[in-house]
Amino acid sequence: MRATFFSLVFVMFAAGCATAPESQELAASIASVNTAEKLGASQVPEAAQALESAKHEVAWARALIVNRKHGRAQLMAERAESDAALAIALVREHEARRAAKQATPPGAAAPTH
């Protein structure tokens, strides 16, 4: 009886996970978050905050979908996407700044144009 109850709960849980609807927007946001992580956004101080926000918003969007608040969920996915894109851009900026600093010999200022 007890075992049956747990199996039932497990089946429900698994089914819930498998069928949790993921909108296209959310899928795109998750992809962007993954990209930001792969680029090492968590190692770049400026980008780490934006990456954390994006992850948080992905989780929030999932919760909203589960609660059938699809309109808000879509906006939350958009928020996640905008934070992930910002994190990626900040990683790129960090790299570009470092490259510029390396290319400029110390004490010698490159002409502006």
Binding site: S82, D83, A85, R92, E93, A96, A99, A100, T104, T112
Partner: peptide, 22 residues
């Protein structure tokens, strides 16, 4: 976030140009 993205990308382009100039 979109405004920040535009700003950051603009700065990045500046850094890239600075590196190239150097």
């Amino acid at each position: 976030r979109k405004a920040e993205l535009a700003l950051v990308m603009g700065r990045t382009a500046d850094h890239v140009e600075a590196a190239r100039n150097a």
